[in-house]
Deep mutational scan, measured.
Amino acid sequence: MSIQHFRVALIPFFAAFCLPVFAHPETLVKVKDAEDQLGARVGYIELDLNSGKILESFRPEERFPMMSTFKVLLCGAVLSRVDAGQEQLGRRIHYSQNDLVEYSPVTEKHLTDGMTVRELCSAAITMSDNTAANLLLTTIGGPKELTAFLHNMGDHVTRLDRWEPELNEAIPNDERDTTMPAAMATTLRKLLTGELLTLASRQQLIDWMEADKVAGPLLRSALPAGWFIADKSGAGERGSRGIIAALGPDGKPSRIVVIYTTGSQATMDERNRQIAEIGASLIKHW
């Protein structure tokens, strides 16, 4: 067993022997301040990774656009098919120029040779490549099948209805392509620590998230040296922004954090800054 596999296998073990965790309302004060600064709703939840206990939450059962955070769930569904012998990570998928959609920095470079399922998941999570996500959605049967996968996990809230990039439209009061912070946090925890996926697939999923290259201005910008984070960000229309993450000190994750916002007129930089400040408060009061 590799060191990384050992780390993920012992996530519940280490967490069980940690000192009790206590909620700190100071972080919620910052979440509410972010709402004021952005002029928009902000949803927040913080779960203990081992027990699933909610440590703090704000608007945990209000719907927010998922945006690209759905790509972690998508690759979880792909990995479940791999575990069941219905898919192979090494299978190569070929596609054409007509398949390319807006923001496809990886797939646009491989029109000639195609990409493997493993490479597509890596591109979808680490670079948020939209064509990679659409190609992977095709392998599982489309958005409705991802929703069905989530329902089978016990998540009857999260739903995907459309493809990239239309799913980022974020129309107010439109339930399409949305989740709730509580539902997303619980589902992410199941994917990373539950028995739904094999140990190898859980490790692969967290490795992809740990290698995320496009979430630097968010929670990662607030992390002290030595902290662990595996995350996936999302951005959408109407001032929408979000991030889902597993993080913790001492090089291992111990909490799940989900943050979503929508309806702001603020710039992307300002949305990023507010999420980073929430992260800084979380870490300060850990």
Rank of each mutant, 00 (worst) to 15 (best):
P25S: 07
L28D: 05
A34G: 09
A34P: 08
L38E: 12
G43K: 03
Y44K: 05
Y44A: 08
I45G: 05
L47Q: 01
L47I: 08
S51E: 03
K53E: 01
S57M: 00
R59K: 04
R59Y: 14
P60K: 08
P60H: 04
P60T: 07
R63V: 12
S68P: 09
V72R: 02
C75I: 15
G76L: 03
D83F: 02
D83N: 09
Q88I: 03
Q88H: 07
G90Y: 13
R91P: 07
I93S: 12
S96Y: 01
S96G: 05
N98T: 02
E102A: 11
Y103C: 01
S104C: 12
S104W: 11
E108Q: 00
K109N: 08
T112V: 12
G114H: 06
M115N: 02
T116M: 10
V117Y: 00
C121Q: 10
S122G: 14
A123V: 06
I125W: 14
N130Y: 05
A132E: 15
A132L: 13
A133H: 03
L135W: 09
L136M: 04
L137P: 07
P143E: 10
E145I: 14
E145D: 05
T147K: 11
A148K: 09
V157H: 00
L160E: 13
L160K: 09
E164G: 11
P165M: 02
E166T: 09
E169Q: 01
E169Y: 07
I171M: 02
D177T: 05
P181N: 08
M184R: 06
M184Y: 03
A185N: 03
A185L: 03
E195R: 09
T198L: 09
T198Y: 06
A200K: 02
A200V: 07
S201L: 13
S201C: 15
I206L: 13
W208I: 04
D212A: 14
D212M: 15
A215W: 00
G216Q: 13
P217W: 09
L219K: 05
R220D: 15
S221D: 11
A222I: 06
L223E: 00
A225M: 00
F228V: 05
A230L: 10
D231N: 04
G236C: 11
E237I: 13
R238H: 14
G239D: 08
S240W: 05
I244T: 12
A246Q: 03
A246C: 05
L247P: 02
P249G: 05
S254W: 08
V257C: 05
V257S: 06
V258Y: 11
T261N: 08
T267D: 14
T267R: 11
D269C: 02
R271Q: 02
N272W: 04
R273S: 13
R273K: 06
A276M: 07
G279E: 10
S281M: 06
L282T: 08
I283S: 15
I283V: 15
H285Q: 06
